[in-house]
Design a protein around this nucleic acid. Structure first.
Lengths: 144, 144
DNA sequence: ATTAATTATGATAACGATTATCAGTTTCAA
DNA sequence: TTGAAACTGATAATCGTTATCATAATTAAT
């Protein structure tokens, strides 16, 4: 089974927090890692149930919270609707270009924008920890 | 009474859409315009009721939607919790620096960042319509 | 002014996403 | 092996928001 690194991160996190291990959490973690899509809790729950039908939605939410805490995942809020969870560990930071017509989005990155944000934060005496940049528009396909 | 311009915008919008005028909507509009804060629907409802106790929360939501449609207001989603509504007409575009400790935020603006976003969108063949940039960090006060 | 068509309203039910509760189960260190 | 503590699934509760519906208000045409 792959994802040794991610599993090690999760196991250390769980141990350090004084929590206990469980098969459900392992199933959820591996299912999450196996898909590269930005899933909602519900969507992930549906996938996990294929492997382990007994897993409840509450445990999926609880585990996703842990995954975010140990930085294996991060929340993605694109306007309204359910929160989506994306991979975080081992993934470059990126922002999102979201098509207002079809709802699809692509990931983009610009180091200069990041630098300017730092400059902006410094000017206001903020210690910057992170950001979310959502750009809305019409994608190539939908423009036609 | 002030806010003639904004009222004119709203009245034209209502007329052009084939809607009708109502006292409740006028109360909600004026209460919204009078405060510069980024209110939630609930908070605005509480203020409106001081002037007109009969106004219901549903009408506040309905009116806020109209205000966004005619660009007098725009939605502000800062992480979880309720949507906040900010003034849009006559206000420069800006982004937000949000303190993760105290929850306060300040408005900032950097034309260079805007330009770089345009460049990024063009590279991906997106027709950019708008964006939300949320920067999270620790503000001056909370750093101490 | 009267009417008739249409929109607006407030109360509240319904909704979707998420969190809290709780009784029973599992983990794990001693 | 045991006992304290964490974990679980089911589901009730919560929160913000939208839909429904019967009644009221607005408007344009008479």
């Amino acid at each position: 089974m792959a994802f040794e690194e991610e599993q090690k991160i999760f196991d250390s996190f769980v141990r350090d927090k004084g929590l206990k291990h469980s098969g459900q959490r392992k199933d959820i973690l591996l299912t999450f890692l196996k898909t590269e899509k930005h899933l909602t809790a519900d969507e992930l729950h549906a996938l996990v149930k294929k492997k382990n039908p007994a897993v409840g939605i509450a445990t999926v939410y609880r585990t996703l919270r842990l995954l975010c805490e140990c930085r294996l995942s991060s929340e993605l809020r694109l306007g309204n609707g359910a929160v989506r969870y994306e991979h975080f560990y081992g993934h470059e930071h990126h922002d999102h270009l979201i098509c207002v017509k079809c709802g699809n989005f692509i990931e983009v990155m610009d180091p200069e924008i990041e630098k300017l944000q730092e400059r902006l934060a410094k000017k206001e005496d903020f210690r910057l920890q992170g950001h979310k940049l959502l750009m809305y528009g019409v994608c190539r396909k939908c423009k036609q």
